[in-house]
Design a protein around this nucleic acid. Structure first.
Lengths: 227, 227
DNA sequence: GGCTCCCGTCAAGAAGTCGTGAAGAGCATC
DNA sequence: GATGCTCTTCACGACTTCTTGACGGGAGCC
């Protein structure tokens, strides 16, 4: 769930933004001042902050500076001020975008998406771990768990493609036709000889007892399954 | 040196932007169309792209899409179009900001700074150290640890780009296609000859025994890995 | 038992990839 | 125009990977 913190002193703007954002599936926190907003960022860890520049008490610009002292959360500034100096000051203080009121809701939403997309953590890092070995899909390598510590296993391109496919769909049966088509391209769905040879090679490298596979199971007549 | 690529079909806008940016110490490349711009991004690796939406031939939106297919360079879109749908389309295609003409130069510059600041690595470790050499990603140089003290190693631009990519993703396998695309631009994913030659050059300069690489490993058929 | 089908194993040759040296082109500088 | 640096391109041997065919075991069926 994506969380948005809206900071604005005008209740009707808060209400309008909150309604629109919730309707699009965002979770919304509201603050009426900078003093309210700062602890909310710390507690709720929003994915993006929408910040009105004209706040009573602590000014919007000060809020940006206070946030940037310790947080990298994307900040989209709203303001009625057209003056370029305000825009430059807010952006240079660390704001990510500056939208002038009145603004269209669809534009604001697009700018929020853009701000969040940029800050999105590069990649999730899926590692499929078993008692005997671990498949690191990001690093594209396999480590084998041995009594005397881990050991990196070298896989050939074909072996890796097969293991990756099975690991990504672990628990599910992957048919021979699917594997052949993914690895050897369309038109090779009949060459199950290849599959047997390469699956055997993978098992030799990662299974504790290759002749009695524990993780890479054969489903006769159908395909293979990684459990 | 910060490099900016300006893409606009109107010569006077190109001139105005170029003058202003150069006066502020940026290095500026110019393109009058999307077709000109794409290879320039591949060759020159700008830190940010300023892109006019109303281009003859290839439309600005198509340029955004084409760039985002392989590059994460920040894109600031310029446009006379006020229509919200244009803004939403450009931002959702992967643009980082959308500035409507006419615009103030100081605002544009602030938005460029904001776009570049966000894309800055902000990375954890700017120096990757091994027993035999250290790669300083911030200073962009390599020092080799020798028995009689350290020695600065001179790398050519291509060599540095390759080593930097591998160092930033150390431990992970980087495929040939990724390396070729990052360094030589899209469309060069098949020219693995280059890769072999330049990797050999890097190894000659940083590996203790280039014929038996200890840090820059080859994964046959897949790519390279910095461990 | 005999037969068929599917699978795992093995080995040898084919096919592809990598590292290396060297030659030449392109380009900036002097 | 000469020089030095860099990148590209090519050819070769060494090496890795893939393909292919043969063989044998086990399950199911007649």
């Amino acid at each position: 769930m994506t969380r948005v913190l809206v900071v604005d002193d005008e209740p009707q703007i808060r209400r309008a933004l909150s309604t629109n954002l919730r309707a699009r599936g965002y979770e919304v926190d509201l603050a009426a001042s900078g003093e309210e907003a700062l602890p909310l960022v710390a507690d709720r860890h929003p994915d993006v902050v929408v910040l009105d520049l004209g706040l009573p008490g602590m000014d919007g610009l000060e809020v940006v500076q206070a946030l940037r002292a310790w947080s990298r959360v994307p900040i989209v500034v709203l303001s009625v001020r057209e003056d370029e100096r305000d825009k430059v000051a807010a952006l240079d203080a660390g704001a990510d975008d500056y939208v002038t009121k009145p603004f269209g809701m669809s534009e604001l939403l697009a700018r929020l998406r853009a701000a969040m997309r940029r800050s999105a953590p590069a990649d999730d890092e899926p590692v499929v771990d078993t008692d005997d070995f671990a498949v690191d899909l990001a690093a594209k390598h396999v480590v084998r768990h041995l009594p005397d510590g881990d050991e990196v296993v070298h896989l050939t391109p074909t072996e890796w493609q097969l293991l990756e496919l099975l690991a990504r769909r672990r628990g599910r049966l992957v048919t021979q036709a699917e594997l052949l088509q993914e690895v050897w391209g369309p038109g090779n769905e009949r060459k199950s000889d290849h599959l047997r040879v390469h699956m055997a090679a993978i098992r030799r490298k990662v299974e504790p007892d290759p002749s009695q596979p524990r993780w890479l199971l054969t489903e006769p007549g159908m395909g293979y399954r990684f459990v």
